[in-house]
Design a protein around this nucleic acid. Structure first.
Lengths: 157, 157
DNA sequence: CTTGAATAGTTAGTGCACTAATCATTAGCG
DNA sequence: CGCTAATGATTAGTGCACTAACTATTCAAG
């Protein structure tokens, strides 16, 4: 007994669901970024792509998609919109015509200066300290690791 | 000095972003539910609606949308799909023809039995204890509260 | 060298989530 | 009463995210 899969009645209460709290938190935090990112002309997913490119560019679509833990099929149209906005360039790599070299335009590179204020602004807006942020960050990383570990945790076969 | 809005260089590192970890965690956890919910014929958002209705029904669209912290415009097409799947009914309330009464079909009510196992199964799959789940849940609720508090925390007008 | 497998990206199709605009109904006030 | 406000839900339009299917290029084994 005391098997973890024993479902008690209120296990199904919406208010007790971690998955629910997590999705609401995610949407709420992204929503809190919106007014700040609007001034940069970026959506939140676009902001993450720009962070990715400010760290290193040019990069391939696959490289970006792995860094952001998303499918290339998700990144592809997102890049087209960033190109249309004038922040990035998309060119085939000479010598390997399959691969795309995603780089920054001068405008895209310049945007980094304005973006440096974003993390601080958001910490301020959310009323979080650096420690709280890093603690929450660590919790999220643990949770991500748990989803990768598969059934019954990392100890299984 | 030590103003929280001082942006240091590596504040822009993707790996340090709470918002990034949060969105990845959310997508990863929802993804982990997928094989489990597939057997019930539900997507994750649809599962949340059903939790909502198992707690109390019939309910209006606005009621559901507030319980799930989502826009009525998001819920509306979702309900149409749940109706098409045979889990719920949608009828106008007699006496107030604006309001929709969203209720359960026998099939939708019966689905609850199968769903009772879901929370336990997921805890097992993620290798989380009840305590870990409730701690993470509390962290998420705090974060949600922080996004509602507005700039500079709850103390600000 | 050529053919088949692997790799890189895109496209199509489904579903969520949001804002803004619309329609119908109800409530309330002069 | 009758007109306006407000309320409840839906629709249109944009963007994200996923899977599956497709194209194009490159690699690699025979």
């Amino acid at each position: 007994m005391a098997d973890v899969t024993d479902g008690t009645q209120d296990d199904l209460l919406l208010e007790h669901q971690l998955c629910f709290a997590l999705t609401v938190a995610s949407r709420s935090v992204v929503g809190a970024y919106k007014p700040v990112l609007d001034r940069l002309g970026l959506t939140h997913p676009q902001y993450l792509v720009m962070l990715c490119l400010w760290e290193s560019s040019p990069r391939s679509v696959r490289d970006i998609s792995e860094a952001l833990a998303q499918e290339p099929a998700t990144i592809s149209p997102l890049l087209r919109r960033l190109e249309a906005a004038g922040f990035i360039t998309r060119q085939r790599v000479p010598g390997d015509e399959r691969t795309l070299a995603v780089g920054l335009t001068p405008q895209g590179a310049a945007l980094r200066q304005q973006a440096t204020a974003v993390p601080g602004t958001m910490m301020d807006r959310l009323g979080l300290t650096r420690e709280q942020v890093s603690q929450l960050h660590a919790s999220m990383m643990d949770l991500i690791a748990a989803t990768k570990a598969g059934p019954n945790g990392p100890a299984r076969r």
